[in-house]
Every structure is written in C-alpha cells, then in structure tokens.
Amino acid sequence: MKELIKKLTETYGPSGEESQIREVIIGEIKDHADEIRVDVLGNIIARKAGSGEKMMLAAHMDEIGLIITNIDDKGFLRFSNIGGVSPFTLIGERVIFENGTVGVLGMEKPANLFKNEMKDLKFNNMFIDIGARSKEEALKKVRLGDKAVYYRNCDILGDCATAKALDDRAGCAVLIRVLQNLKSPRFDTYFVFTVQEEVGVRGAKTSAFGIDPDLAIAVDVTMTGDTPESEKMAVELGKGPAVKVMDRSVISHPRIKEMLIEAAEKNKIPYQLEVLEMGGTDAGAIHLSRSGVPSGGLSIPTRYVHTPSEMASIDDIEKAANLLLCVLEK
C-alpha cells in the first residue's frame, strides 16, 4: 500500500489535465477489470461485472493546482487557482508542470507583506519563477494555460503518509486495491476514477449519468478534529475509515450508511462517523443523477487537506479497502 500511495500521490494530475495519473491508474487495474473505458471528460470507468444492482464507486483522481494566465517580458508567470488552493500555502512553495518544469512561488513586495499586510495576500500579488530570463525562454517550457501542482515527495512518517494530493489519491488507492482483490462481486460494480472533482464534481456528474447506477459510494478524504485547537469535529487519524453522514454536498442515504456500518461491525473493522461542515464529494453529484441514486461516502481521515503536506494513516486506508471489500464481496 505504501508503494501504491507514493506512486499515486507523486504523479501529476490537476483538474482538467488528468492524463498522467489516468495512465498510472489504468496500469494498476487493467488486468483486473472486465472492461475499462474513458469517457468524454476523461473519467476512467472500470467494470467488474456481477449480477444484481449496479454499484458505482467513485474516487477522484484530479488534484488542486494552478493555471498559467500570463507570461511577462522577463519570463515570470502569473496564475489562477484550480480548486481550493490558498495563497498562504503557496508561500515558499515549489510547483511542477506536466513536462517536469519546476517553478518557485514568489510574491510582490514581500517585505511589506511579511510586516503588515499578510492577510491581503492574493494570487494576483504572486507569480511563478521558472528561472527563465525572458518571455521567449519561458515559452520554451511553459505555455499559457499550462497547469502546475505542488512539487512534493511522499514521505512515510511512522504509520502515516504525508504527501500532496492524498486528496484523493488515497481514495484511488482504496478503489485500486478493492478492484484487484474483489473476487465475486455482490453487485454489478463500476469503479470510477473521476476528473474535475476539485472544481465542482464535474466528472462524477457525467459518469453517473452514463452508468445510471442503483447505488453509489464515493471514497474521498475528510478533515479531522484531532490537531491542537482544531475545528470541532469527531474524526481522528488512525481510528479507522469514516462513514459519511453529511457534508455540504450530500446527506448519505440510510441504506448506504447502514450497509457500511453493518459490514464494519460484522467484520470488526474500526470505523468512525463523519459530519463534515465544509466541502463536498462526488456523491453530491451522483445522488442527484437522473431519478436519484442512493449514495453515501467512505472517507479517509486526513489532516492539512489542500496543503502540500496532507497526512493520512496508511492503516486507515487499508481498513477502508477491507471494509469496502466486505461490502462488495458476495
């Protein structure tokens, strides 16, 4: 699992530019699925055929990032955010483009910002420096519209992994493991690695319409309340995967919620219950598809979400995969 998480989190894949991560994931699952297709928006839809109801599992493969909107005469790049990036997490950060170009985040009038107006820091006071001396030199490496992601390795700290993009490569790892190990599915199961979740659950919307499932579970990360003076939230790292009750995009359907809780209790897998006050998941789009799809979520407790150093417990991720297998196996 450690290797898989490292591989997935270190791969490039901002919303709208998911081809590299798509290739990596297809490489992991191609020998295990009955059929695999990629749809118009770029979602991977892998099916493990079974009789009975159609179950859609979704984990998003995109990550937050930056998009280049301007290159000036001196070769500095201006950008806009893709999804929930904060200017503050960018200070001193390095980013990497699809072609491997690395850039450093700089800001205008840094002395003034550090002294007085840090709260005013906005993306348009920041720029990316790729070491180019001119526009021409910059253009050899980066074009307008190219996208960058945090440039960080995955480190293993005890039982924890810390990396960029655990949101939601942790969920992708769960789906991959489940697909690799699922023998006789209780449902006609669709494993969907979705695109563009971070900009508004767009991939989940189109893939759910196409699959038209009877049930759905989104596997994503959730926040925790176990760090010093954190927001009040009952989820902790290392206490098992969290069964979603509610977030801003979905209130879990009782059938899915009970299905997950029952499987956890029957198989003695520790679990937690999640009430997330910010953010949403793919289930938000899926449950409103067509005439409605009973949907819920299984979440990986994750600290420091949307920073370059998200942190999750590998044990929680493994237990999430085990729990999901218990639900899906006949």
Binding site: V40, L41, T69, S80, N81, I82, L144, R202, T206, G210
Partner: peptide, 23 residues
C-alpha cells in the same frame, strides 16, 4: 488570442457536463 484570466463563466459550464459530457 487566449483568454488570460480564469474568472467568470459561460454556457459552456452547463453544456460540457450535460448527459455523458460534451466536448
């Protein structure tokens, strides 16, 4: 030219996610 900001929205927002997705 390329549009060089990422603000705003257009009908493309709703069209491209219609049904199974439209390029």
């Amino acid at each position: 030219q390329l549009r060089r900001t990422a603000f705003g929205g257009t009908d493309a927002g709703s069209i491209h996610t219609t049904k199974e997705g439209i390029p």
